[in-house]
Nucleic acid binder design. Structure first.
Lengths: 218, 218
DNA sequence: CAACAGTTTGGAACAACGTTCCAGACGTGT
DNA sequence: ACACGTCTGGAACGTTGTTCCAAACTGTTG
């Protein structure tokens, strides 16, 4: 039954692993069935015996990376929401294409891996039954939005240095019409110096504060 | 080969307008230089005289749609954040491809149209100088994340009815391993009945509550 | 051990894409 | 009327996801 056809037999796992490798090196658009076939020393047609199409392959790759990242946390931390959020943030920071996938595919299988621990923690916080869905949805949307933005930035980072890019955007903001964009001009200078990870966590705390207030207001 | 000269001149605006039309009808992947050329009764090569490439065209189309949507609000509402957020949400709901673009392109020009009014309102709320960047970033990330998710759902809506899709996902959640996914199973039933727009607004209020607490805590 | 049946393989082929190229048609200033 | 620079749009190039299928391979049977 489970005998190996060849020493380097093609399998779904090997294909997904190779896909992850290519995506990490060459980014979102770098994954090609021809390049993938080259890495696996085969032809493009062979891959379709183990994977339906590129979309499924991308979904599987995303799930694989996120699953591997999520096993790490394990312990029920008091600040599990923050811990999970940071794992997601760091994972997408290391694999920007994961962010692209999560925000492109509706109700992505890998999303459950994020939703579940966050949901448990929200329950543990004593949030009322009726407010749990809203709270978890808000946290999830924020995490995806912030991570996605970060992934978009990381996607063009090979071309430009991060601070170079941010300062150029900052200069662009500072030169906007003072009448139309006073606020944007006002915070332009804060753009290059800020820490993405820190800002991300501050946003999580903001939402958590809102959730706690939700409990007290009722 | 007698090539007929066109009577109506090609222009950047006409190209962008036609692109928006196609994107609205055929979705993200529906925009093609050949199809666009067909709509404009010309060849694909002619378009490149007014637009550098597809990426620029998509950016321009996104900016055009968002600019048109944003002029509507104008008046300084007390709940401007909520108003702006809803405009963005509804715009992306009507043009899902706008959501894709906003979360793909880093510091998208159209983003300023969202950032500015939200920033002003945050200032008006009396948020401390040091907390303004965090507050605006959090709101922006949430708006993009939630709208993006909504866009992803809308993208596959032509294939499936919304409630059909949600109930199928809900059933999938309900059948998960009780040991591993207790929370997901727990809220599975709330999935089909929820109102996306309402949930979105509730999330905005959650963050706004957090921001107000931020002021009181300091 | 030999013959068969069912997969797996991988290279060729197809349609469609973004983009480039350029001969010819156009419009304008002289 | 002429010339010159701009706009046009069809052809062509390289690349993509995907399909197809003869050949190679594996496991089972006679």
């Amino acid at each position: 039954m489970t005998t190996q056809r060849r020493t380097d037999a093609l399998s779904r796992e090997r294909i997904v692993a190779a896909a992850v490798e290519i995506l990490d090196v060459d980014g979102d658009d770098g994954l090609t069935f021809r390049r993938l076939a080259g890495h696996l020393r085969t032809g493009p047609g062979a891959i379709y015996n183990h994977v339906a199409n590129k979309s499924e392959l991308l979904t599987a790759a995303t799930d694989a990376v996120l699953a591997a990242a999520m096993t790490a946390d394990a312990a029920d931390d008091v600040d599990m929401v923050r811990a999970v959020a940071l794992v997601v943030f760091d994972t997408i920071d290391a694999h920007p294409w994961v962010g692209t996938q999560l925000s492109r595919v509706p109700s992505h299988p890998a999303m459950l891996r994020i939703l579940e621990p966050i949901g448990r923690q929200v329950q543990a916080l004593g949030v009322a039954e009726a407010d749990q869905f809203t709270s978890v949805s808000a946290l999830l949307a924020y995490i995806l939005g912030a991570s996605g933005q970060n992934a978009a930035n990381a996607r063009m980072l090979p071309d430009t240095d991060r601070t170079d890019f941010l300062t150029s955007v900052s200069v662009g903001w500072a030169n906007l019409d003072p009448g139309e964009y006073p606020f944007t001009r006002h915070i332009a200078q804060q753009l290059p110096g800020h820490d993405d990870r820190e800002q991300f966590l501050a946003g999580i705390d903001l939402i958590l504060a809102g959730i706690r207030m939700l409990g007290q207001a009722s």
